[in-house]
Amino acid sequence: MARDSSSPLSVMRPAEPREIAEALTHALRFDGRRRVHDADELMATLVAERLVAHLARCGFVLMKRADTVPHDTSGHHHPHDSPGGQGA
């Protein structure tokens, strides 16, 4: 069965272990945007890395949306940019 290019899975890619560990580290250190002071940064990093290794050994595959470049809708150039591409 062919995959439709507009389906959510067509823009997904396997998440890198480093990305998963960073997300878990953040989750252990913050509650939303508020810093949690009961988890030390080093401990959060160690726990996240061990969790990632365990999930990989168990066969889990986490997916992440493909990175996209922000679209620039402005047709204007920065005032310090010269026509030759060199700044002021």
Rank of each mutant, 00 (worst) to 15 (best):
M1I: 09
S6P: 01
D31W: 09
P14R: 14
F30G: 03
L42C: 02
L24K: 04
L42E: 08
G85K: 02
P79V: 08
E19R: 06
L9G: 14
A15W: 04
R29Y: 00
G75Q: 09
E19G: 06
R33Q: 13
L46H: 02
V47S: 12
P79H: 06
V69G: 01
D4E: 12
R18N: 11
D31N: 07
L46I: 14
H78Q: 07
T45D: 09
M63H: 11
A23K: 00
P79K: 07
V69Y: 04
D38Q: 12
R29K: 14
A44H: 01
Q86Y: 03
P8V: 15
M43F: 12
F30W: 15
P8R: 05
F30D: 03
H76R: 06
F60Q: 08
G87I: 04
P14N: 12
A88N: 07
E41P: 12
V69Q: 09
P79N: 05
E19S: 12
C58V: 02
H80L: 14
H54W: 03
A44V: 00
G59Y: 05
A21D: 00
V11A: 15
R13W: 06
M1A: 15
H71L: 08
R18F: 05
A53L: 06
S10A: 15
R35K: 11
V61Q: 12
R33G: 03
F30S: 10
G84W: 00
V47Y: 03
T73P: 11
C58S: 13
K64N: 07
A88K: 11
P8W: 09
S82R: 13
L24D: 04
G32D: 11
E49M: 07
H77G: 02
I20P: 02
V11E: 08
S74M: 10
C58W: 13
G85D: 03
P8A: 13
L24E: 04
D67C: 00
P83C: 01
D31I: 11
R57A: 08
H26L: 04
H76S: 04
A39N: 09
L51A: 11
L55G: 07
A44D: 01
V52I: 04
P70C: 04
G84E: 03
R57P: 01
A44M: 03
L46Q: 12
V61M: 07
A2M: 10
E19M: 04
P14E: 11
H54R: 03
E16S: 15
